[in-house]
Design a protein around this nucleic acid. Structure first.
Lengths: 148, 148
DNA sequence: TATTGTTATACTCTATAACTATA
DNA sequence: TATAGTTATAGAGTATAACAATA
């Protein structure tokens, strides 16, 4: 245990992969704890993805958000139940379902963006412009890692 | 739905906070799916933190990894049960417990580091040196955000 | 046969509340 | 009173397996 010593650090012993892995996991837990709004992280991300892409199928959403189809079924079911997403038949493939955001969904997305990100936005504003720039450059790299 | 169009992007509509939040959550899910070894993300991080700091109490571990004390109790109980961590009485405060890594814990940590990070290490090696440098600079910033 | 989506079910992780022991 | 740690319990999120419908 540390007695009056500085905050413990995990990083520095592992390589970049371990440091990044642990940092991502910990920040993810921290963000989850913060909560924000009435949508979970995956629910919010799914709604945002559908809105951003105009329309997506459940399978595309599952692949995009890195969850399995049955998990996304639950997320979508919730969003449809809340009248935030709408189901429509696929124009050419009757197995598929086309999801679009409802007006209510788009409105909620707009309203909750600030609220949901309040904690993180505040923390980011306390960083130096240089640090924010680093994170801005890191985001697309993180996206690419998720996609791999 | 996208028909033969490029991969959908979430980023670009929200600000840095939203983009970062969603990217972190998604990569966290992706990393969890990858698995790697027989320790969960929190179990591995806890063991690494104790090893790195020589000794920590459960409360310090909980604060450090951003989980509540009862959650860390379970993590620690598992690690002690697996003979990876050892409990010892605190020298001056009999309420507290001092955790140290066992030889088995340190050995496992060394052995599993490469295995556990194999997927991410491979992905990182496919990035440009510049991209890796960005992530290297981002890690301590992410740590700082977690700590806030 | 392969794929989309769903249902049924179970597991993992984390949380809150309440308790004990110690400070 | 306050804090460290635990126990009991519950919730959220995600997974696998099996199924129906369609390609």
């Amino acid at each position: 245990m540390r007695m009056n010593s500085p905050a413990p650090q995990v990083t520095g012993r592992g390589g970049l992969a371990e440091d990044l892995h642990i940092s991502i996991a910990r920040l993810s837990r921290r963000l989850r704890r913060q909560g924000g709004g009435d949508l979970s992280a995956t629910q919010f991300a799914a709604l945002a993805a559908v809105d951003c892409n105009e329309a997506m199928t459940p399978r595309e959403l599952a692949d995009h958000e890195k969850v399995r189809p049955p998990s996304m079924t639950r997320v979508v079911a919730f969003l449809v139940d809340q009248d935030l997403l709408r189901r429509a038949p696929h124009p050419t493939d009757r197995r598929q379902v086309v999801l679009t955001a409802t007006d209510k969904g788009r409105t909620l997305l707009t309203e909750r963006r600030a609220l949901r990100q309040a904690w993180l936005s505040q923390r980011l504003s306390e960083l130096t412009p240089d640090a924010r720039a680093v994170l801005g450059r890191a985001v697309p790299i993180l996206e690419r890692l998720s996609r791999a």
